[in-house]
């Protein structure tokens, strides 16, 4: 595959369609700057600042734009809130739509057939694959990203975190908790 990719890059470069230095910057940005820590900051702020949370649920893109992140979020970010009554989970059955700006590039499992096929039909079974079991009467709300809207789950704030700073809270916010295949970590799960 490596040779085949290099052949394509050489042709596109020689024809002036792409600039290898630009490609380097794109790769570097996703390897080092644009990842789930961005989303974790958004969630931690929402947990700490009720006015921000209200704006976030009203218009995700506008609220996130105020945080000045590396990758400005596009126009169509929808933030959906987990509550004791309702758990949200996001999937893209048709391809791999995912909020890159706040979560980085999606993991392999998100783009693979098992997750894409089962989540809309058996979300509790999928959650079990992640070791997550929810009460039987919790509503499970599946969001299939079939257009250019992007969905971010606002997980529930763990108990025992009263008075924590946003930085410390962000350490509890996992990538999976913002997709809906996990929950935020509890304080006792932090290793350091």
């Amino acid at each position: 595959m490596q040779l085949r990719v290099r052949a394509l890059e050489t042709v596109l470069t020689e024809k002036g369609y792409v600039d290898p230095a630009t490609l380097d910057l794109i790769v570097e940005a996703y390897e080092t700057k644009i990842g789930p820590r961005n989303g974790a900051r958004v969630v931690a702020k929402a947990w700490s600042d009720p006015a921000f949370k209200a704006r976030l649920l009203e218009n995700g893109s506008e609220a996130v734009a105020t945080l000045g992140m590396e990758s400005r979020v596009g126009d169509h970010l929808v933030v959906v809130e987990n509550t004791p009554q309702r758990h949200n989970i996001v999937v893209c059955t048709l391809c791999s739509c995912y909020p890159w700006e706040v979560l980085g590039l999606p993991p392999v499992w998100y783009k693979a057939a098992p997750y894409r096929s089962r989540t809309v039909k058996d979300p509790r079974g999928v959650l079990a694959d992640f070791g997550v079991t929810l009460p039987k009467d919790t509503e499970i709300r599946v969001w299939d990203s079939t257009a250019e809207t992007r969905f971010l789950v606002l997980p529930m704030r763990p108990e025992g975190t009263e008075g924590w700073s946003e930085d410390r809270l962000a350490d509890l916010v996992t990538r999976d908790s913002m997709i809906g295949t996990g929950l935020a970590r509890r304080p006792q799960e932090l290793t350091s």
Binding site: D122, R124, D137, E139, I140, R141, V142, W143, D144, T149
Partner: peptide, 9 residues
């Protein structure tokens, strides 16, 4: 499962 709702755009 009656507790599940699914949306598309």
């Amino acid at each position: 499962d009656p507790t599940v709702k699914v949306s598309i755009d």
